[in-house]
Design a protein around this nucleic acid. Structure first.
Lengths: 249, 249
DNA sequence: ACGGATTTGTTCGTATGTATG
DNA sequence: ACATACATACGAACAAATCCG
């Protein structure tokens, strides 16, 4: 009464509702990714090797990989192998580095879409930009679009009256730094940045079309011009799946 | 059939299931926090001022604030005011800055708890530490504990044979840098860091006692000694609610 | 530029356990 | 108890893309 296939036995033998083998393998592979054994961009063993290691058929491994591909954790290329998916955009952060140049270096298009422009009653404000309370600010809300996909939501604050009409300039030039040039800003220098992991607000989720459970990377940053005068304060939340920061020392 | 109180009317008048007023206020306050109008540590207007702005009773504001306090977005101090909660630990990241010194500067205790130690069969490895494939590594998994609360989970990799027995040293000294001294490492320099926002794995969630929906900040970092030899590769995921990174330029 | 080796993609087939009615 | 449908898992063969000498 021995079953023909040993592997099938293990399937039927499973005690009270253990998950299917391919799901177990999926979980195992997820652990491999999460504990750093395989870092973004690195190649996994071949399907055949994985099948041997897990003592299953190649199809079973493929089923697990398919799921991880769907979850955007892995990337598979025919003839090449299985790779750990890297974020669409790696931002090498520095004092003067611009996000847009990081995008073009990757051969990607980064655009903005303006959502709203309003004047902020800056009564309880001031602190981030180092301005006195009550100083008027213009506030832009915009979506950052990478290769046609909404990847981030930003609020940017600019002090008035210096940057009167900046919204139109950003909209027409499609670039913040280009718009800034019109106001005599030659250099945009990052003064400080705060990085956090947060959950999207309901508005974030709606505008970016993501789940509330999608982790986001929030960057709060303050920029100054060449005379060390604060020119921009912004809060940006990036979809964590497509964005990361690289820091070299 | 006129309602006795005008306030009740507005409540009963709500069109198809609009949320209660305090929830609307909570949402509004959440937006204030998320769009950068109030940054971590800053003080909100007084309850009375808020009540006036929203044209509600102070109690209604208090109900909203209570919820936000429970969600750990706000912190209320009697006689002082309502403050935007800041992460328990702000890590000013630099080439030589240690996390532990960031903790002590905040007057907090940062400890480690070792969870597992194992030898890694480094067949498909090597790349992160710049070592040839097959190089043996020791892998530690540990929990970082801030003021008695588990805030992060780390995997740390150290090349063998150089760091033979480092687990015992870390456990006994309670410090990685102290343990490193025993191996002749005077300086631990950060070479590179990658920062991402990710969801916790099931294991993360279990060990740290958090929901799967809690965003985490993942830092993958590579450290070198004074002779530029790689000495540590680590992956750490921090509970996003209690941790952020500050970068000054 | 060619050819063989490697690796993933696709399509057959077989067998078994599970859920449904 | 039975028929049906579906998910799971293994086996074999070949196609297509890639790599390397």
């Amino acid at each position: 009464m021995a079953p023909r296939h040993a592997a099938l036995r293990s399937h039927s033998d499973r005690g009270s509702a253990s998950p299917p083998r391919w799901k177990q393998i999926q979980a195992e592979l997820e652990e491999w990714l999460s504990d750093g054994r395989f870092t973004p961009g690195s190649r996994l063993p071949t399907e055949e090797e994985l099948a041997q290691q897990f003592a299953v058929h190649r199809h079973t491994v493929r089923r697990a990989v398919e799921q991880l591909k769907h979850d955007e954790l892995l990337r598979v290329e025919q003839g090449k192998g299985i790779f750990v998916r890297e974020p669409s955009l790696s931002y090498r952060m520095g004092r003067t580095t611009k996000l847009s140049s990081a995008a073009t270096r990757h051969g990607r298009s980064l655009r903005y879409r303006l959502i709203s422009v309003d004047l902020v009653q800056a009564i309880k404000f001031g602190s981030p930009l180092g301005l006195p309370k009550g100083h008027p600010l213009i506030r832009l809300q915009m979506v950052r679009i990478l290769d046609g996909r909404n990847i981030a939501l930003s609020w940017c604050y600019y002090p008035l009256p210096r940057f009167e009409g900046i919204a139109q300039l950003i909209a027409s030039t499609g670039s913040i730094s280009a718009a800034m040039k019109h106001y005599g800003v030659e250099e945009i220098n990052r003064k400080s940045a705060r990085v956090r992991a947060v959950a999207p607000t309901t508005q974030d989720a709606k505008i970016l079309g993501i789940e509330r459970s999608t982790p986001m990377l929030e960057i709060i940053h303050l920029a100054i011009d060449e005379r060390k005068i604060p020119i921009e304060f912004s809060v940006t939340r990036y979809d964590g799946r497509y964005f990361d920061i690289l820091i070299d020392f």
